[in-house]
Design a protein around this nucleic acid. Structure first.
Lengths: 317, 317
DNA sequence: TATATTTGTGTAATTAGTTACGTAATTGTA
DNA sequence: TACAATTACGTAACTAATTACACAAATATA
């Protein structure tokens, strides 16, 4: 199919489905050729019963990897064709013991030639290929059992996304971004206050020159988040984490966490034992993030900000 | 699955189905991960439309290898989710021109990352295997297009069956079989005549000692078919092919053809240029077989047999 | 130009599986 | 020993495809 050359391997599911359908279709014709009264879908059930012993529906289902209703249906169909007999277990009234009938057993004889020929045909097919389909399926089954396709894709996603995010130190280039990103969320939820203007308009004199730091999260090399670490003149706390802002256009990419983490690491590297922050309880995702970073709520302290209604601290061990 | 180790490769259909199901299941979760409003089954349709142009239902179906009702249904579902827009073709009222809507187009942007990650994940999976599943599927598609699985199995069957058939020269051991097999079909369709009894009761004096031959087809080493080559005392023909009989219990195994062929070869090896035969038009499979062997109808000749109403000849080049 | 054939599409029924759920029998446990 | 949990399995509803069929529109043909 030309289609699959275009799509690439992400269409492997569709492609597999088509091949499967093609093979199943021929399987039905093959039973007819050998004049055997059986449908391809019965085969797995027939096969496990052909060992001879009677088995329960659930046993068969487990063995062939189907759901039990599927086996239940197949057994009913096979019973209609007199291939199996059902019998309630005497010691366990729930169990429906299924075994091949005389007619079913007679088919096990008749079908031997078909088994031989089909196996031979497939072996020859495989011998003509450079990549062994049977073994390839086996390998996929093994690998997917260890780690599902979903998990593989998710990890791929995380890796790619995290490559796009870089946390860098503040430079004058980011002055505008520092102001804009903060003004954006502050004025969305509250209103800008005097203390905001002071810090955002003069980060050098109000934050950096006083022993503080600012980190910038770049997403695809563009500033998408900022956060400040402000030196506190307080017996209880070394630094305050403040002015954290992440652009709403890049939400859900874990940038807040990466930024917060980097700020905490920075504080640690500066020998800090405690970090303080102020926030507002209506900013639920932010509060969650602070929790995730290890912050805990503390008793109220006075704040220069009107919007502050919750205070948190992180004790560094 | 342990099951498949037991069954051998004839269960490749079932095994493929299971792998397909596993992958499709994860595909649905993957779309969710990327927050894309799409089902795995929509993907092929979405993909061909993402090229931009509007296409008819049938075009899409052809391109992705689905039936048109399948595409029709998918389109309706996608329309319900505002992913496509339908529009009747102005110049051809039958055509339903389908293209991606604005929302659909916006997904083509969003989905790029997902494509990348899924392809990457599958590439890595393939890199971890010794047998490339993708290429293996491709090879199977190619080989099955050239000759279907059904035809491969049928040929395998024929080959195995023909190994069971041996054509041997007549010996006294086969006297009873020569008589019985012939009497069986003659008395089923007609009634035994004087000439029949003579030849069948005394093959040595009536056939072999007069320069004729008898061949016996053994199926599993038991006589299952016979045929005589009788020397003719006629200016037009060297030999007559007669008394061909195949047991109805082994019908459909090509034994008649193998036997007839062997008789013709025997005649050739004896230097014959012409072979003659008599039959009856109600024996259609027999007449077909004679045609297949190269015999053609000739004008009526007198015959010692009442049942003879058609005569045929083979000219050996 | 009338009619037959082909083409495009929708609807209905079928298929081979699934999950969800109900119920009865058995087993485990306080 | 009473009751909760588990097990076995059947029924119902759903899913993602198919084939069969109907019908209208367009095209080919006598």
């Amino acid at each position: 199919m030309d289609f699959f050359n275009k799509t690439g391997k992400m269409a492997i599911g569709s492609r597999l489905r088509m091949l499967t359908e093609m093979i199943t279709e021929d399987a039905a014709k093959i039973y007819k050729l050998y004049d055997i009264d059986m449908q391809p879908k019965w085969f797995p059930v027939f096969y496990v019963l052909s060992a001879g012993e009677a088995k329960t529906i659930t046993d068969v289902a487990k063995e062939i990897g189907h759901s039990h209703p599927s086996v239940s249906k197949i057994i009913r169909e096979m019973a209609k064709h007199d291939l199996v007999t059902e019998q309630k277990d005497k010691t366990d009234g729930r169990r429906n013991m299924v075994s091949l009938s005389t007619k079913g057993l007679s088919i096990t004889q008749k079908i031997e030639d078909q088994y031989t020929d089909v196996n031979q045909a497939i072996e020859q097919l495989i011998a003509q290929t450079r990549n062994d389909l049977w073994k390839a399926i086996e390998e996929w089954e093994f690998l997917l059992e260890q780690k599902s396709l979903f998990n593989r894709v998710r990890d791929q996603n995380k890796e790619r996304e995290s490559l796009k995010v870089k946390i860098v130190d503040y430079t004058a280039d980011y002055k505008q971004a520092f102001r804009d990103l903060n003004e954006e969320w502050i004025s969305k939820w509250f209103k800008m206050e005097g203390a905001d203007y002071k810090a955002l308009d003069n980060p050098e004199s109000y934050i950096l020159n006083r022993g503080g730091h600012i980190l910038v999260a770049l997403y695809n090399n563009k500033p998408a988040g900022v956060c400040a670490l402000i030196k506190m003149d307080d017996p209880d706390y070394d630094y305050e984490m403040a002015k954290m802002a992440v652009s709403p256009t890049v939400q859900g990419k874990n940038i807040g966490f990466l930024l917060g983490n980097a700020i905490v690491e920075k504080a640690k590297s500066l020998g800090a034992k405690t970090i303080y922050l102020e926030s507002n309880t209506i900013l639920k995702p932010a509060i969650n993030l602070y929790h995730k970073l290890g912050f805990n709520k503390v008793a109220a302290r006075t704040s220069p900000y009107e919007r502050s209604n919750i205070q948190m601290e992180l004790i560094i061990k």
